[in-house]
Design a binder for these strands. Structure first.
Lengths: 135, 135
DNA sequence: ATGGACCCTGTAGCCACTACAGGGTCAAGC
DNA sequence: GCTTGACCCTGTAGTGGCTACAGGGTCCAT
């Protein structure tokens, strides 16, 4: 069981050192033992836990969702229904965000498409932003 | 020229009062004159400006982009090329975000699809999050 | 013994608001 | 004229998820 410094953990998971300390502060990572020189001393379990966190964060789960997933992952004999629920909710949220962004893109593309590249006074983009006319 | 309170402005633009004060604080809205009782007194120009801001924000422009757009909108005899550039950059950014989210959705949907709804120990979602095996 | 790479704590900053607390003002109704 | 309640004021702190210092300590190789 290898002794890992916070820098080792950072390198192996692609996380910044400050972020790891932040995860510890908010209780996402356990408080690790310290060396004589007061350095955090990690082992492979924390490496695994941090990998899990990073992967979940990369998939867009919020910190609170990650916290719930970690709790669930530890209760290995329970049904994974709760896991499914969290993931499903997150998927729905992502779908919604995609739909919102697509609508936004279409609207913005439409606004840009009407630009005749003349003076600002005739700019359709500006006009589209100020639809009440410029008193 | 009607005198508008901050609450009137808020109602007419769908903005919260606090947000309007925030916009003033960061210099996006001009400091308005005050009534005897120290209330902000707006007119239709500020209403128009705030509508512009809200619409640009709704289209996802950042505060800094809105600031630039407002500056440009005031220089009515210049070419609107700069406006086009800002809008184009923003459109590209949105496209990128959509692509990122779609990739995310596909990956997450895949992870969820592999779930066999058994115990957490065999949960494919948890496994997918901790790809290095469980110590 | 010295240099540089690493580690420590604590705090402040980022974005774009939002939410108070603790007060003042104003208009309507009695 | 007094009360009530809706509105307004300032100032500060919180949100999420980090990130970036400042100002110091530790460790290891030379």
């Amino acid at each position: 069981m290898s002794r890992l410094t916070i820098g080792d953990l950072a390198k192996r998971t692609g996380t910044k050192v400050e972020t790891i300390r932040y995860y510890e502060r908010i209780g996402l990572l356990p408080v690790p033992p310290r060396t004589e020189g007061n350095y955090r001393a990690y082992d492979n379990r924390q490496l695994g836990r941090l990998s899990f966190i990073r992967r979940a964060r990369d998939l867009g789960f919020s910190i609170e969702q990650v916290r719930d997933l970690l709790d669930l992952a530890d209760q290995r004999d329970r049904s994974c229904e709760a896991v499914d629920v969290i993931a499903g909710q997150h998927l729905a949220e992502i779908e919604r965000k995609i739909a919102d962004l697509v609508a936004l893109r279409d609207e913005l593309a439409d606004v840009i498409g009407r630009c005749k590249h003349g003076a600002v006074a005739d700019c359709r983009i500006i006009e589209a932003l100020a639809p009440h006319g410029s008193d």
